[in-house]
Every structure is written in C-alpha cells, then in structure tokens.
Design a binder for these strands. Structure first.
Lengths: 137, 137
DNA sequence: TTAGCATCTCGAGCTAACTCTAAGTCAAGA
DNA sequence: TCTTGACTTAGAGTTAGCTCGAGATGCTAA
C-alpha cells in the first residue's frame, strides 16, 4: 500500500509544504517517485517519517536530523555513532521532561494562588500588583 | 538587596539583550530605575522573572505572556481570566510531557535496536538502508 | 477534449525570538 | 582628570523553520 504526499501530511499533521521542505533538506533521502515524478510513500517510509517527527518534536534541529540521515545512508559503519546520538538525545529528552515537571509545579502554585479568594483580595491592596502576583504561599 | 541586569541575566541564564528585549515587549512592566536610568531588580522582581521564564520555557508565545502581564497590571478584576489562562496552559504542559514520554519510547527502541549486533549486521544486507533503520522488534 | 484537481520545482516571503551594533551616559578607581 | 567598564536606547540583522505563490505538468471524470 502506497501513500501520496497529502496522505502522509494528513497522517502526521504536517503540511505538504513542510514535507517537501524536509525532503529538500535531506530528511527523506529515500522516497521514490512514480512515472510522473510524484513522491510515493510506502508503509516503511511512514516509519521513517514518524522517526523524523519524533526527533523534530523532541527539539532536535533540522541540521542534526540531516546529519543522522546522512549517517543512516552510509550503513552499518555509522552504527555506533548513531547509537551515541540517540543516547545523547535521550538524556536531553529526559531533561526536558524534568524541566517541564518543575515548571508545572510553579503553574500549579499559581492556580492554587488564584483559587484562594483572600489572595485575589490582596492583589488590589498592595501598591505593586506584581507583589501580589509573586507572593506564593 | 537589589540586582543589576547582568546579575539577573546570569541567574536565569539569559543574555542582557534578551532581558531588555523582554522589557521592551512589556514582559517586565514594573522594573524600576536608579537615578542614572539603569534597571534595578529587587528580590520580588526575581520571582516575576522566574514566572516569565517558566511560561516561556513551557512554550507560551511572547505575545501571550504579554497579554498575561497586561492582565496582571489591571489587578484583581482579571483574576478569573488569569486563573483560566494558567489552567489551560497547565493542560498544554501535561500534553507536552505525555508527548515527550511517547517520543522517549521510540528513542529507547532505537537504542535497543542499535545495541543488538545482529540488527547492525542486517543493515548492510538490505538494499534499502532505511528498511534496516525502521525494522523494530 | 476539456475542466478540474493534485502534484511538481524554484525561489521569495514570513514570523518568532532573539542578537548585535552604534553611539551615548554615568560612576568609580588610578 | 582620565580611563575603564557597565549600563542606556534605537534600530538593524540573524536564524530556524516553515509558508506561500507562480507557472508547469499530468491524471481523471464529464
């Protein structure tokens, strides 16, 4: 079963422009074409696109993803270096999760601040609005 | 105890340029100045900067943070709307964490793929390199 | 066969968030 | 007094990642 560029765009919530941009940047170094030059995506290609989206959505810059693609094209000789890349990237993703969890705590504190009517009362009593804003329990 | 712009930049790992940019964009609507016009940050201001960084680092656009700042300046009348903002933002942060966790699973699968020497062998045997890349256990 | 639609390439344009430069002010130390 | 260094503003420049438009091509249904 094959897919057109707009099928794939729909599946991954990307625009066809974006997919063509990724192709141009070398992130899809394998997509074949039909006889009229249109891109043809196979089921296997979808897994690749999923991986590219994974890397992009975890904050890897396009040029680093491109580097990975270039390594992938070279075959097993770059196996170790690619493993290292994923391991390093793994720690950055863990860090992102930790950072988000810390930020979530602050957001939760703000919500509980606003949920206490006394705090909201206090807001206008203080000369500096920001004082009320930053006075956490 | 007061702080200069470069003290604060150091504390939050921002550049002084960025802090001035945030000020210009209305994200620091309260910072006072000394008699020669230099910004003076109080301990309370640091809490505000921390909140701005929290919102920025959880993906809130500058213009939305600006909106929040404008509401904060208006006092208790915008209390409810700000609570809603934090509640909505909370769910987007939870979503981000979930998405990162899903992506982490894929990254872990890639690492275990590379850790199996048979898979790495397989890479060069397949005509299409990407096939080896996307064949997960 | 003709209309309509999806695809293509190439290249320009756009937005967000900085990032930097130039030219100037000010206060403290040698 | 002079120099050094941190601060100021206004505004231009940069980067990443799209996003769009023009003009061409090719299949498909009426």
């Amino acid at each position: 079963m094959n897919y057109t560029i707009s099928d794939v765009a729909g599946m991954f919530n990307l625009s066809v422009h974006t997919l063509r941009y990724y192709d141009k940047e070398g992130l899809l170094p394998f997509i074949s074409r039909d006889k009229s030059g249109n891109r043809v995506f196979t089921a296997l290609d979808l897994d690749w696109v999923a991986l590219i989206c994974c890397l992009k959505n975890t904050g890897m810059p396009i040029k680093d993803i491109k580097q990975y693609c270039d390594w992938a094209k070279e075959g097993s000789i770059t196996g170790e270096i690619r493993k290292d890349l994923f391991k390093k990237h793994r720690t950055t993703v863990l860090k992102q999760i930790e950072d988000l969890k810390k930020n979530l705590e602050l957001i939760d504190m703000k919500i509980s601040f606003y949920e206490n009517p006394e705090n909201v009362q206090l807001m206008d009593k203080l000369a500096c609005k920001v004082a009320a804003e930053t006075m956490f329990p």
